[in-house]
Computed example of a mutant assay.
Amino acid sequence: MTTPTAINGGGEPSTKRPRLADNEAGSKDGQPTYKMAYLGPPGTYGQMAAAAFQSCYDVPIELIPCPSISAIWETSSTFHVFPLENTIHGGVTETLDCVLSNLYSGGSSVQTDEEKQGRRIIADLALPISHCLVVKKGVKKEDIRWIRSHEQALGQSSKFIKTHFPSAKLKTYPSTAGAAVSLINDLNEDEGEGAALCSKAAAKLYEDKLVVLYQGTQGISNNFTRFILLSNPSHPLPNPTTSIPSPHPTEFYVLPSASDIIPFFQSSQIRNIHSRPAPIPATPKTDKDESQRKDGVWTYREDRFPTLYFVEVDVDGMGLQEEDSQISKRGKEKGWYIGKAGWRVTDDQINAL
């Protein structure tokens, strides 16, 4: 077996992964089995995050792997685990688009799904990320013509790829673990041999067929992906038993106008802002706007580039009580309340898995 080359001293948060393969939980003492959807297949960072959230409950929770982030959103599971942002690559646009997709009808005939619209963020965690470059057994570095992985992993490893594989073609895939599995099943030899970026846990699952050429390919050693846990408050939910109240809880809102952000949160600490195109184009404001449009003059940016702003604010600075807060009530007029990360999975809990 080829000896892995360490890059940036990166490594997995823990080498103990027996619970990652445990994807199902049966009923216990007549209690219902809850479901938690995440980005699969087994061995993804999404599964690690789901297992960490799952460990905070003492009721049966079945982990449901999904082939893509949008597929997570489409499930009717009790809980949904999404990657929100990464240290290197920033916000995960697929997650943001899913959360925003069911909020804004814009006066069109599109019908919103009340169940999806009711989902709320309830918790978060920061998962250490360390990517491995894997190949099929027998493939050497000089054989690699392309590299496949999730777009986040490719972006986080861009410096490494440019240094070691400057001519390699990049191919996106719905998940890092899925990219590794695809190497085993890939029968298309027209483009030559390829490699995949995945977690060390995924590489270990398929160590009989895959070889790790490099470890820690991400741009920096302290690379983290923040995951959020969503649930629907209209459903009966179990209470977490081993979670830690977040020392700095934050609330999430979506606003349709940049000009409303500062006035809306003027007495609060804004932690983060993500902007994404609105799912439904805005309607022109007036006939005058139409005439200006024909003359090539655009008075309102929102007319041509309708945007939604995903804003995270510090709860401590406002003394909020979730949806009973004054800012939450105003949010019903100006935008949407998305939830509160009221508890967090600690690093010790993640490392214990």
Rank of each mutant, 00 (worst) to 15 (best):
L170Y: 08
K200N: 13
A201F: 05
A177V: 04
K171T: 15
G192W: 06
V212D: 01
F165H: 06
V181D: 08
T176D: 14
K209Q: 12
S182I: 01
A177W: 02
N188F: 01
L170C: 07
V211A: 13
L205W: 07
E191V: 00
A195T: 02
Q152G: 13
L205Q: 11
H150Y: 10
Q215P: 07
E207K: 13
E151D: 12
L205I: 12
S149T: 05
K209I: 02
D190N: 07
L154H: 02
E191N: 06
V211G: 05
I228P: 01
L197D: 03
T163N: 15
H150K: 13
Q152L: 14
G194R: 04
K159A: 15
T163P: 11
E151M: 13
N223R: 02
E189K: 14
D186F: 07
K204T: 12
D186A: 00
P174L: 05
Y206T: 02
V212Y: 02
H164S: 12
N223F: 02
G219P: 03
L183Y: 03
Q215E: 11
K159H: 14
Y206R: 09
P166I: 10
A179D: 07
L197H: 03
P166Y: 08
V211E: 14
N188I: 07
I220P: 04
L213A: 08
V181T: 09
K169P: 03
A202Y: 05
R226P: 00
G194E: 01
K162Q: 15
R226V: 08
L213R: 00
T176Y: 02
S199Y: 03
T176E: 12
K171F: 14
A177C: 10
S182R: 09
L187F: 06
S157E: 03
Q218P: 07
K162S: 14
Q218G: 14
A177Q: 10
G178C: 09
L213W: 00
T176P: 03
V181M: 13
D208L: 07
K169L: 10
G194W: 05
T163E: 15
S167W: 05
I161Y: 05
D186Y: 00
A179R: 02
N188D: 13
F160S: 06
R226D: 01
A203M: 09
Q152S: 15
S149Q: 06
F227N: 00
A195M: 04
A168S: 11
G178Q: 03
S157Y: 04
S167N: 14
L210H: 06
A203E: 08
N222S: 15
T217C: 02
I161R: 11
P174M: 08
S199H: 06
T217M: 00
A195H: 09
P174T: 05
S221L: 05
S167F: 12
F227S: 06
A179C: 08
S167G: 09
I220Y: 03
A196V: 01
A153L: 05
T176A: 15
N185A: 14
P174H: 09
